[in-house]
Design a protein around this nucleic acid. Structure first.
Lengths: 293, 293
DNA sequence: CCCTATGATAAATTTCCCTTACCACTCTGA
DNA sequence: TCAGAGTGGTAAGGGAAATTTATCATAGGG
């Protein structure tokens, strides 16, 4: 059975000691003098021993002298903890991990992250990239706080906040016959050597689904895919954001018929709420990408 | 500005976590469930962030998971301190120093101390011996908590609690002419070679005061004094307690006219109250020596 | 010697915590 | 499918605890 030492009376004792009297302390604490007298006496009763000499003005007993530094230590610990937790709640510190699809990671995250860390200097961000399945897994398993990806279907245990639509188009080398076209229909691709990739399943359920069966080649790795395209070995379909702009010889042609797009958005676990830091990131991303872009 | 984290709600949070639910925790804490709900919500508001998921049964938010171990740490620290201070107040632990006159130190303290430490195993005792002036100085300066000595006069800044009277008698070798006497008067000493010692001033203000002027020899050190007496070089006066029983050849003869005695007692500073440990020692000494002995 | 400082005390008041009573929701087993 | 027991949340009232107001006794300083 431990007596409950409330923090406030301990603070009173320290104030009396530091200010050299009950009246001075009461002014400092914005309390009246009897409040201190009674609170401290209550504390003394609880401890079973007087802290201040009776009849002397604010003089500590030996027991009191023993207690004061320990009170101070406990209060310091308390205040440090209180400040730390509040700061963390106020998103001034913390840590978050996110999983992001490669196209977003390479094209959007650099600018986003640099702005984020300058706005929230205390927050540590871990960025993990991988394909849509990887992102989904990471979020569901709780390995990361939030993810940015496009969903293939509705997920029971995930919340999806849409950010933007990303149009699917055809990518080919600049000397390819299709390269000069402004728009394409799926029929125009029937005779092409179409290379499949991780985003190809976006075509599922659309008028262009027959193209899926044409894949002679399937390349999931982006570097390999672009190298193959640059080598002129065929064409592929990609969302615009996934189109690697840095390759001068590659062209992106919009697919007009059917219009296919993926909806890129933010995902998080349904049951669990976000940590303050992750919440800050979520709000930041929605604010940055939700409207404009 | 630091928010005041009260200990009790923190305890509630831990109970809910440890017992896996508000109801289970409320049973454990002997509180009703709404009490926990409201106290914890109050705490959440204070921190600015939820600790438990809403709509889920007692599931911690990421922020909550971060907080819980820190709450536990603070509460452990609190409880440890509370127990320690209460134990100290209950005299189960602590430390005290006392200054004692040599006769008391050698004749009474050994038995007293062995009983004391067996009754209060946690208390550390420092025992310092010296003459009455030394004891007085040590107590007044606060070097020691309490002293046992006899006072020569009333002291303004000391509290004196009498313990027992110690009769002054004459000490001589067993072959001395006075050795066979049962009692003596001061006149019988006029022709003797009287050796003075630290206790001689007890005779001041008594009928035997003329003896003080007869001192040809003054020896303050007890070992030297007894050696001198054993050598048959004279007689001296000593309180009975100061008479060294271990010397077979020395005899103690009561002084009947005048009866001189010192009043041995406990002294402590008037303004300052005692530490719990010192208080325990004081009560113990009074209990042991006040009545009997 | 008055005046002002100290802290202690008593009663009134405000504040806060807890309980009782009730609701909404989810899960389980018949 | 539906009753029943589990979860936790909400509202209103009571009571204890903390605080204030008012007063007192005492001690030190001009």
């Amino acid at each position: 059975m431990v007596a409950e030492l409330k923090i406030t009376p301990l603070r009173y004792v320290l104030a009396v000691v530091d200010h050299g009297g009950f009246h001075a302390a009461s002014r400092y604490l914005h309390r009246t003098q009897p409040a201190l007298s009674m609170a401290i006496r209550e504390l003394e009763n609880r401890l079973g021993e007087a802290l201040f000499e009776k009849g002397a003005k604010a003089t500590l007993t030996p027991y009191g002298s023993y207690c004061v530094p320990r009170f101070r230590e406990l209060i310091n610990q308390h205040d440090r903890l209180s400040r730390e937790l509040q700061a963390r709640a106020a998103k001034e510190a913390g840590q978050l991990d996110m999983a992001v699809v490669p196209s977003v990671a390479s094209r959007l995250m650099p600018k986003l992250l640099s702005e984020f860390v300058s706005r929230y200097p205390g927050i540590k961000v871990g960025l993990h990239d991988g394909n849509a399945d990887f992102v989904r897994e990471q979020v569901i398993s709780g390995q990361v706080d939030i993810g940015i990806t496009s969903l293939w279907g509705l997920e029971e245990e995930l919340l999806f906040h849409p950010l933007f639509h990303d149009e699917v188009g055809v990518v080919c080398r600049d000397d390819h016959p299709l390269a000069e076209r402004q728009t394409l229909t799926w029929q125009a691709l029937e005779t092409e050597s179409l290379i499949g990739n991780g985003t190809s399943r976006l075509l599922q359920g659309t008028a262009a689904k027959s193209l899926l069966e044409m894949h002679a080649l399937y390349i999931s790795n982006m570097i390999s895919l672009t190298a193959t395209l640059v080598a002129g070995m065929g064409v592929t379909t990609l969302p615009r954001l996934a189109f690697p702009q840095e390759y001068e010889r590659l062209r992106f042609i919009e697919l007009a018929e059917p219009r296919v797009s993926r909806e890129v958005g933010l995902i998080r676990r349904k049951g669990a709420s976000l940590s303050p830091a992750a919440q800050a990131m979520e709000s930041f991303i929605i604010e940055s990408l939700g409207a404009g872009q």
